[in-house]
Design a protein around this nucleic acid. Sequence first.
DNA 1: CCGGATGTTCACCT
DNA 2: GAGGTGAACATCCG
Length: 259
Amino acid sequence: MPELPEVEAYRSVAEAVVGRRVRSVSAPDPWYVKGASPADAAAALAGRTVTAARRHGKLLVLDTDGPHRLGLRFGMTGTLVVDGEPALERLRYGPARLDPGWVRFELDFARRGRLAVHDPRRLGGVSLDPDESVLGPDAATVSVADLGAALAGSAAPLKARLLDQARLAGVGNLVADEVLWRAGLAPGRPAGSLAPDEIRGLRRVLVATVAELCRRGGSDAGDLFVHRRPGGRCPRDGTGLARATVGGRTTWWCPSHQR
DNA sequence: CCGGATGTTCACCT
DNA sequence: GAGGTGAACATCCG
């Protein structure tokens, strides 16, 4: 999915519906609505006005003037479509087209327009009043102290820790590889083994990389991305990239400069 | 035809 | 308890 940069792009586009009043809610796929029935979700949102479009990690939250808010998760293939326009065109594993059968959830607004989630693989989902307290600090703005706390005392691979949304919210597989490559840190390093200056460096690279990927418009816009394939070489020093599963995800890194 | 792919969750191991 | 693995979700692409 969309990792943090994509969801931030979705959030930006979703700002267009702030101030609009929900006329009706369509949830053709009940399975996609988590923790509440489609009827309950519809009742909670109908007639309410969207007051903010926020992002926490990979979670997009629409606040309302009522007692409820809406959380949207996009899985790997979810695309946000506002007023018929996809929020991001180049979603790599997203829908190749906007098949109406892939609309899993939709808000229709009173005066005009609509906000829909298209998700072919149904890996995402929407929820009423999502519990944001289970998410760690947002990767775009995490402090050195919070990042240090997320890594401290763990024998788990550094990358696995970065991907743990409860400890740090927003980093996905591509962003993790890009950040570790830029920071010169091996993904398999025990998370708790980083020295204070390494944590400071990682934090600086993380925040800068996330901001840059947001500007470039996607987590696939990193400098490492095009090289993470068989035969790929490190764009910094030409070393053949290593590939392994770390934290349950395919991981590419430079065995020469990432230590 | 087969294997993987920007994610999350859960059951089941070690 | 902490981590790891594999499955599941459903589709596309090489």
